[in-house]
Design a protein around this nucleic acid. Structure first.
Length: 875
DNA sequence: AACGTCACG
DNA sequence: ACGTACGTGACGTTA
């Protein structure tokens, strides 16, 4: 029989040690995980190295122990366990159970005593014993049979205390460690010891006398000294301290060595816990995944023909694309599954297949998909109108947690516990090495995706229902995806000639500015390089350095503006920057995106990306076309209706975010201001500066406007001071005055931060969620950031909810009215349409009506609109 | 790939 | 004492 090896772990000490040794990590739901993580890595390492046959993790039970009877102050003055650690204990216990390791705690005794008692028992039965702790006190238990492992820094770094190691390190025997503790005390346990005696002195004394008792027996003979006085004075205290530091090896425990057999981990359970805690790196490199969780076989057929009987009423279907640019790329193939049969058909074989076309276009045939908008848009290019999508994995998971990226179906599936899909990178390679694999490989990959969608549909929908988010997902995001797909496919007509003409003019101006700049600098350099520009401005020309970035001098616009009076060159650089931006991004960049077939740009709206619920727009980004400065605004002259005799019609919400704030805070003053239909910035100025409407100067209004922005962003005095270029103190006073005038807003802000701390997330009007794991961070910066986010996200996100709902209503209304008008773009608080002239009149009526009543708030919503022959003219 | 910059709401 | 306004995407430079 092999020799028994017992591993005893000090649960509390190890958790504490890990908690303080590692940065505060969190899982996707915002639960802190660093202590459990540290414990796990340590455990993995020790299990691998030691292969124990018996194991136990001991915990402290309750607050009082038998030590308190003799010394009430024992462990007094200890900091309360931080809540970020307390919340981890349930997970730690769950993890230990998953490993099938025994846990034990006993009223009135500490983990140390349990460990000591079992170590002694095991030793008497000739077992090898290893004790693991973060606390050096345990080293007193070391013997020939018992080794004490003490973790250092990263938890996996371990110092092994055998009697000879202790002898080497301190010149003491293990038992003398207790005497040492008695003399020097222990602040963390509030053991007093002898004042003035530290480690060095204690060791010296013990080398001479052997023990505390022996020392006091011979103390008479000691030479007179300060130290002797202290020792004599504190004899009782020293003896009591030794007693407190002594680990009790005869605790009345009701667990025996036979109970501690360690059968090895339940690998599936451990993986589940790791999954829950988002221990991705551990899951990645875990050997149990390799052995046990080898991707299950998936039977699939490669077919060249699909007949109607193969297409069921409910199926998962995946349209595999070459890349994310679905307006230009090719379809590789399609995978279908009904949970039983899986098949793949290549694009070549499907494109003329009538059965597939009919099935895809049949509203009554239910499709489960992932990124249905991409599929819809690309199928449209081969004249297939996708209908009947009832599940979209990307959208559903985004609603469950917008922080989880849905770039790759494999990543997404894994996130929800399904790991039988490979990453696209594994199948295709990346960058220049990208290549379509053999048909067999591709077909399996695509079928696995379809199967993943099929398998995850009930799981993710259940999660949505549990969080009361199913309606948001099913009745808002899902239909919106289809509307966005149509908008993207429709595209926006761009007049390239207009852009080219502007480009030519810009080129001349840029060249002229370059010349001026080189002359003033006295040399040619790359103005686009902040590094080179910094050298010219701050070294060669000696301008004062206002701000630094982590790599050097800041040359950002706000810095340069402050330097304008210092040197002529600064203004030229600012002008150059402005024009260069227009040229590279909005002239050259935009021209590259225009499709030659239809002279249109087809943006892609990212619907499952932002943290707040907003959309984003890419290739090209049509949500940041210049407007603030006239030179840039002219770019909009190149955006035109797609048909002769049509116009572009633009409608935007006025102050939607502040109205949302009024609604959510129910602040009487703010609500009243909107009901009165006042200019909100003027009204704010009146309240903050205590003046009448007539007395509000343009500067006061400007300041009030900045304060309103600040409120929406989650106010900070520093941020406002930067924006208004005033001192922090002044900014702070503005904020105080604002919050006095709008007390309901202050209450709301406090409440929302509290709520975020309690739940770990904040919500919008339609119950969109954003998790804020940093809200409980002890790092000031992280925490402050999370607090501002907690204040801003419900506002920005609710505004996003409102306009999304308006888009759905607007789409329905246009159909209902039988109009030709098409919705083309959404820019966060505005909708852009193209319309035949004859429909302008009705749009002027229905667009504001629909948008203003998308969601009813405690304040009215207000929509302004205009139209023109170009986007520029729709102002 | 990361950074700085700047365009938008 | 800490050091930032919230949310995005595209471009050019530099490592």
């Amino acid at each position: 029989m092999t020799k028994e090896k017992l591993l005893l772990l000090d649960g509390n000490s190890l958790a504490y040690r890990a908690f303080f040794a590692l940065p505060l990590l969190t899982n996707d739901s915002g639960v802190h995980t660093n202590a459990v993580y540290g414990f796990t890595t340590m455990l993995q390492k020790i299990l691998e190295e030691e292969k124990p046959t018996k194991m136990l993790v001991a915990f402290d039970a309750g607050k009082t122990t038998f030590r308190h009877e003799s010394y009430g102050e024992y462990k007094g003055g200890r900091q309360k366990t931080p809540p970020e650690l307390s919340e981890q204990f349930p997970y730690l216990r769950k993890l230990i159970d998953a490993y099938q390791i025994k846990r034990y705690e006993k009223e009135l005794y500490e983990a140390d005593d349990i460990i000591g008692t079992l170590a002694k028992q095991a030793e008497s039965e000739d077992m090898d014993v290893i004790i693991v702790s973060g606390d050096k006190d345990l080293t007193q238990l070391a013997t020939d049979k018992v080794t004490v492992y003490i973790t250092r820094k990263g938890m996996t770094d371990i110092e092994k205390y055998t009697p000879s190691h202790i002898e080497e390190k301190y010149g003491l025997s293990p038992l003398q460690i207790i005497d040492m503790k008695g003399l020097m005390g222990d602040t963390s346990d509030n053991i007093p010891g002898v004042p003035g005696v530290g480690e060095k002195t204690a060791i010296k004394l013990l080398k001479e006398y052997g023990s505390v008792e022996a020392l006091y027996e011979q103390i008479e003979a000691m030479k007179k000294s300060k130290m002797k006085e202290k020792l004599v004075e504190n004899e009782e205290q020293a003896k009591m301290s030794k007693k407190l530091a002594t680990i009790f090896t005869e605790a009345p425990i009701d667990i025996s060595l036979e109970d501690l057999n360690y059968p090895g981990p339940n690998e599936e359970e451990v993986l589940n816990v790791w999954q829950e805690l988002s221990f991705k790196s551990l899951i990645e490199k875990s050997d149990f995944r390799m052995e046990e969780k080898e991707t299950a076989d998936l039977a699939f057929d490669i077919v060249t023909d699909v007949t109607t009987d193969m297409l069921k009423d409910v199926m998962a279907v995946h349209v595999e694309l070459e890349n994310e640019h679905y307006h230009t790329c090719r379809i590789l193939g399609l995978g279908f599954t009904d949970g039983k049969k899986n098949f793949y058909i290549s694009f070549e074989d499907m494109k003329n297949n009538e059965a597939i076309k009919n099935w895809l276009e049949d509203e009554s045939k239910i499709k489960y998909m992932s990124d249905s908008k991409a599929a819809q848009a690309i199928l449209k290019r081969i004249n297939i109108e996708l209908r009947g999508v009832d599940f979209d994995l990307v959208l559903a998971t985004y609603i469950v947690n917008p922080a989880v990226s849905g770039d790759d179906l494999a990543t997404l599936a894994k996130e929800y516990g399904y790991s039988d899909v490979q990453a696209n990178e594994t199948i295709y390679g990346k960058g220049a090495k990208w290549t379509v694999p053999a048909m067999e490989v591709l077909a399996e990959h695509v079928c696995r995706k379809a199967f993943a969608i099929w398998s995850l549909q009930p799981i993710v929908e259940e999660k949505l229902k549990e969080n009361e988010q199913f309606d948001l997902y099913h009745d808002l995001e899902l239909p919106l995806a289809s509307i966005l797909g149509i908008m993207e496919s429709e595209g926006v007509k761009v007049n390239i000639a207009t852009l080219e003409k502007m480009g030519g003019e810009l080129e001349q101006k840029i060249t002229a500015l370059e010349k001026e700049i080189y002359e003033l600098a006295g040399e040619k350099f790359n103005i686009n390089s902040p590094k080179q520009l910094g050298v010219i401005l701050f070294e060669k020309l000696g301008l004062p350095v206002v701000k630094k970035t982590k790599t050097g001098y800041s040359t950002a616009a706000d810095v340069l503006e402050k330097l304008q009076s210092e040197h002529q060159i600064v203004k030229f650089i600012l002008d150059y920057r402005q024009l260069a931006k227009l040229q590279s991004t909005y002239i050259e960049g935009l021209i590259k995106e225009v499709h030659s077939e239809d002279s249109k740009v087809h943006t892609r709206f990212q619907q499952a990306l932002t943290a707040t619920g907003r959309l984003s727009s890419t290739d090209p980004n049509l949500q940041n076309i210049p407007i603030r400065l006239e030179e840039g605004r002219k770019i909009r002259q190149a955006f035109v209706p797609s048909k002769e005799g049509w116009v572009l019609f633009a409608a935007d919400y006025s102050q939607i975010e502040l109205r949302v704030l009024a609604h959510m805070s129910k602040d009487e003053n703010l609500v009243d201001a909107f009901i009165q239909g006042m200019d909100i910035h003027t009204r704010t100025a009146m309240d903050v500066f205590h003046v009448s409407e007539e007395e509000v100067t343009s500067n006061m209004r400007r300041a009030a406007k900045a304060v309103n922005f600040g409120i929406v962003y989650g106010i900070s005095d520093y941020g406002l001071s930067q924006n208004l270029d005033i001192t922090r103190k002044e900014a702070g006073e503005f904020i105080d005055k604002y919050l006095q005038s709008f007390p309901g807003v202050k209450e709301y802000m406090d409440r929302i931060v509290q709520e975020a701390k309690l739940n770990g997330f904040v919500t919008t009007i339609l119950n969109r969620r954003r998790y804020l794991p940093d809200i409980t961070s002890r790092n000031f910066n992280l925490r402050s950031f999370a607090e501002r986010t907690a204040m801003n996200t419900p506002i920005q996100g609710s505004a996003a909810d409102i306009i999304k709902k308006a888009m759905i209503d607007m789409d329905a209304r246009l159909k209902q009215e039988g109009l030709q008008t098409k919705m083309l773009l959404q820019v966060h608080d505005e909708l852009i349409f193209e319309a035949p002239k004859e429909e302008i009149e009705i749009l002027e009526r229905i667009v504001p009506e629909v948008m203003e009543h998308a969601i009813e708030l405690a304040v009215p919503l207000k929509v302004d609109f205009s139209y023109g022959h170009t986007w520029y003219d729709a102002k």
